[in-house]
């Protein structure tokens, strides 16, 4: 039996109610997150991947409390977060936003941005905040004289470092990272990812890392969950997932990751036609069935449960135990 997970999510649901139209019925609810469960051990990093609109950002924001969950629960150290005072939760769990441009208040200097959480959450006095601010800037690789500058004076990568420093200002140990590098240039992405890895190693941080890019996750995460239309369809340790993907969707995603030294025609490229639209459509079967190369009539009638009976890690596919999904590909 493992220790109590630092962060646990049980059956989390987030539905966005449709707007009530002037005449007639309410538009159907958008089920952005459906029955998502996972647990995260201290010091680990869980990557959540999926294409745009699959609900992964909503998942992170719901855990953070930025969205009110429709159902399910979030536990921090085994305690229901609804029983934890907001300030205490905020000083343990912090969020790093996707867009480093809109996530910093343009009228606050770096110092002011960092100051508020230190005073408000950690209750540090002025000299302690001064010291801690310098320490934070050093930690995220920014020069101390940057403290008096405004966000627009920085590049995207530097801004994201400020965002990370803000998240760490009140000594949070769990970071929810919502595509923290997807808005950055590729070369800067690597720097920020390296910073995140360094911070995790030095401070023993726990990460929930949202990404739409498997390559980014591969570098940083111990475990990977794949989301499709609001549900986790497969979750496995990184090596297992990358070596032996069991869900056709995971397989499709992986086949899109370019491999150095391999020309385009040399490897199998699976393509899922269409896109992940129709989130409001409450079909009975597997949500991926319409785009799946492996789909059979059964898939459209019966929702495959997410269980690990077939292959030892959770997969939501009727054919998870098939040896090689490739043979079914066109």
């Amino acid at each position: 039996m493992r220790a109590t997970p630092v962060l646990e999510v049980r059956g989390l649901e987030k539905h966005f109610l449709g707007r009530r139209r002037l005449f007639g019925a309410t538009a159907p609810a958008l089920k952005a997150v459906q029955l998502v469960s996972f647990s995260l051990q201290a010091g680990n990093a869980l990557g959540v991947v999926g294409e745009s609109g699959c609900g992964k950002s909503t998942l992170a924001k719901t855990i953070m409390g930025l969205h009110e969950p429709t159902g399910g629960e979030v536990l921090l150290d085994g305690r229901d977060v609804r029983d934890i005072p907001r300030k205490e939760f905020a000083s343990r769990v912090q969020f790093v936003f996707q867009d480093p441009y809109s996530s910093l208040n343009p009228r606050k200097t770096v110092r002011q941005t960092l100051d508020a959480p230190m005073r408000h959450l950690a209750g540090l006095d002025a000299p302690a905040r001064e010291e801690r601010a310098a320490e934070l800037l050093d930690l995220v690789g920014l020069r101390p004289e940057f403290a008096g500058r405004y966000p627009h004076e920085f590049s995207g990568g530097q801004r994201q470092r400020i965002g990370i420093a803000r998240a760490l200002a009140a000594s949070a140990d769990v970071l929810l990272l919502d595509e923290p590098v997807s808005a950055l240039d590729v070369s800067v992405q690597a720097q920020v990812l390296n910073l995140l890895r360094k911070l995790q190693r030095e401070l023993g941080l726990t990460y929930l890392f949202i990404a739409h890019d498997l390559a980014v996750v591969e570098n940083l995460c111990d475990e990977v969950a794949v989301m499709y239309l609001g549900r986790i369809v497969e979750q496995a340790p990184r090596e297992v997932l990358f070596r032996e993907p069991r869900h056709p969707y995971t397989h499709t995603l992986l086949s899109a990751v370019p491999v150095p030294g391999q020309a385009r025609g040399q490897r199998l490229r699976l393509v899922a036609p269409g896109d992940a639209s129709g989130l409001t459509d409450e079909g009975v079967g597997c949500a991926f069935a319409p785009r799946c190369y492996r789909a059979e009539p059964r898939c459209r009638e019966e929702l495959p449960p997410l269980d690990d009976a077939a292959v030892g890690h959770p997969v939501a596919c009727h054919f998870a135990s098939d040896t090689d999904p490739k043979e079914h590909a066109g």
């Binding site: 924001k61 953070m64 939760f89 000083s91 969020f95 936003f97 996530s103 208040n105 508020a116 803000r166």
Partner: peptide, 26 residues
């Protein structure tokens, strides 16, 4: 709806603090 207001909420700032310290200056 900007993300820095979300960030302030994530930091458990009170609504009045968000309104007068984060929104008002802008």
């Amino acid at each position: 709806s900007s993300e820095y207001v979300d960030a302030a909420r994530a930091l458990a700032f009170s609504r009045m603090r968000i309104l007068f310290r984060e929104v008002l200056p802008n």
